[in-house]
Amino acid sequence: MINQEELKHTVSVLVDNEPGVLARVIGLISGRGYNIDSLTVAEVDAEKHISRITIVAPGSEETVNKMISQLERLVPVKKAVNVTYEKRGIEREMALIKIVSTGEKRVESMRLSEVFRAKVIDTTHDSFVFELNGSPRKIDAFIDLMKPLGLSEVSRTGVVAIARGTEKM
C-alpha cells in the first residue's frame, strides 16, 4: 500500500492580485507547519486582477483538506481546490536542463532527449541546454537518466495545473 504521507497534492488557489497576497499564502502555510514542494504564481485575469497560485504539497488527504480550508479563510483568497492528477487534474511543468559532456555521453544525452521530446535551446561543443515540458514525473525521469551523462544544472518552473473537462474553478 502507498504510504498516505508520501502522497503529493496539487492545490490551485485563485486570489485577488493585491500587494502581499503571496506573503499571506506562504505565511499561512509555513506558520501552520505545512510543507510545500513547489509554488507558482501569475496573474490570469488582467481585468479583474486575479492570480492563480499552484502549490504542490506532500501530506495526507486530510492534511491537505485542512490546508485548503485554512487558505480559504484568507480574505483575498477566492477559492482553493485540490487538482491533483488523481482528482481529474492535469499538471504540467517546464524544466531547463544543462548537460556538460563530450563523446559517447553527449551522443546518448541527445538521443534520450529525442525520446522525451526535449528541445535543444542552447549548445556549445561540450554542452546542451534542453527545454522539457511535461508532467513532473516525466521531468524527474529525464533528470534521472541524465545524471550519468553529465547533468550539470536544472531549473524548473514548478507545477501549473488545471481541472480536466468542462469543470471550472
Binding site: 485542512k66 480550508s69 479563510r73
Partner: peptide
Amino acid sequence: IDPSSINK
C-alpha cells in the same frame, strides 16, 4: 461561521 473550523 468559519468553514475551516469544521473538521479541523
